[in-house]
Computed example of a mutant assay.
Amino acid sequence: MTSGDPALGHVLALIRTAFAGMDGRIDPPSSMHRLTLADLDMPTVEVWAIGAPPLACVVLTPQADTLYLGKLAVAQAAQGQGLARVLVDKAVDRARALGLPSVTLQVRVKLTGNHAAFAAMGFEEVARTAHPRFDRPTAITFARAVDA
């Protein structure tokens, strides 16, 4: 999507709906609660979506040594159709085009189903981190080499 795309509002709504099921399951709450249209319309991020209105989306942020994959969301009615895998593969292609060696993402420790889904798409755990004020890991960093 390009800057100012009116569909960004639909993307934000999709993310909020898809991530709502995490409320009460993860602590601290998802950063999705702080996500705004302005965040999606920043020149430092790329928003990719499938469908009109969007059935699936992902927010990509190029970093110095990786492409960060954030806020991957699929509408409930479209789950099980392989849309997440399509977006992950597009992210890998985009990282390659940008000359970045990997795609990286974070998943909350408690979301074990997501761990398995990303492992099935070629991601490997590379780190565990704790949010501020937590004395235990709250997130797992996964990475996938662009050549994988």
Results as ranks from 00 to 15, higher is better:
Met42Trp: 08
Arg108Ser: 09
Leu105Trp: 05
Ser102Ala: 14
Ala116Ile: 11
Ser3Thr: 14
Thr2His: 04
Ala139Pro: 02
Val146Asn: 08
Ala127Val: 03
His115Phe: 07
Asp41Glu: 11
Gly122Gln: 11
Gly9Val: 03
Ala84Tyr: 04
Phe118Arg: 10
Pro132Asp: 10
Pro62Glu: 09
Val107Asp: 05
Asp27Ala: 15
Glu124Leu: 13
Gln81Ala: 12
Val59Gly: 00
Pro132Gln: 10
Ala119Thr: 14
Pro101Arg: 04
Met1Ile: 00
Leu83Ala: 05
Val92Asp: 01
Ala130Tyr: 12
Val107Pro: 03
Ala64Cys: 06
Val146Gly: 02
Leu105Met: 13
Phe134Tyr: 15
Trp48Tyr: 04
Gln106Met: 10
Glu125Pro: 09
Gln63Met: 12
Val88Cys: 12
Leu72Lys: 07
Thr61Tyr: 03
Leu69Glu: 11
Val92Trp: 05
Phe134Pro: 02
Asp23Lys: 13
Asp23Trp: 09
Leu87Lys: 08
Ala139Met: 13
Ala13Met: 09
Lys90Gly: 02
His131Gly: 02
Val74Ser: 05
Ala95Trp: 01
Gly99Gln: 06
Leu14Lys: 07
Ala116Thr: 13
Ala139Leu: 13
Glu46Trp: 11
Leu37Trp: 02
Val107Met: 06
Gln76Thr: 15
Val86His: 11
Val47Met: 03
Gln63Val: 08
Thr61Asn: 09
Val88Lys: 02
Leu100Gly: 01
Ala20Trp: 11
Pro54Phe: 00
His33Gly: 15
Thr138Phe: 06
Pro137Cys: 04
Ala148Glu: 11
Ala77His: 15
Val45Pro: 01
Val59Gln: 05
Gln81Ser: 09
Gly70Pro: 09
Leu100Thr: 01
Asp65Val: 08
Gly122Arg: 13
Ala77Lys: 11
Thr36Cys: 11
Glu46Ala: 13
Leu8Val: 00
Leu60Trp: 01
Ala49Asn: 00
Ala95Ser: 04
Gly113Leu: 08
Gly51Thr: 03
Gly4Gln: 01
Ile26Gln: 13
Ala139Gln: 14
Gly113Met: 06
Ala77Met: 11
Asp147Tyr: 08
Gln63Ile: 05
Thr36Asn: 11
Arg136Thr: 13
Pro6Tyr: 00
His10Arg: 13
Leu37Pro: 02
Leu105Phe: 06
Ala130Phe: 10
Ala120Cys: 09
Ile26Asp: 10
Thr66Gly: 07
Asp147Phe: 09
Glu124Trp: 07
Val59Trp: 00
Val126Asp: 08
Leu69Gln: 10
Phe123Met: 07
Thr17Glu: 15
Val92His: 05
Thr17Asn: 13
Ile26Ala: 09
Gln79His: 10
Thr44Pro: 04
Arg128Tyr: 06
Phe19Met: 12
Gly113Ile: 04
Gln76Tyr: 13
Thr17Lys: 14
His115Asn: 09
Ala13Tyr: 01
Arg94Leu: 01
Val109Leu: 08
Thr44Gly: 06
Phe118Lys: 08
Gly9Ala: 15
Ala13Glu: 15
Gln106Cys: 07
Ser30His: 12
Phe142Gln: 07
Leu8Phe: 00
Arg34Ile: 04
Pro43Tyr: 04
Gln81Pro: 04
Pro28Asp: 11
Trp48Phe: 04
Phe118Val: 10
Thr2Trp: 00
Leu100Asn: 01
Leu105Gln: 03
Ala56Thr: 03
Val88Asp: 02
Asp41Asn: 15
Val47Pro: 00
Ala56Tyr: 07
Gln81Gly: 02
Ala95Tyr: 03
Trp48Met: 03
Gly70Arg: 14
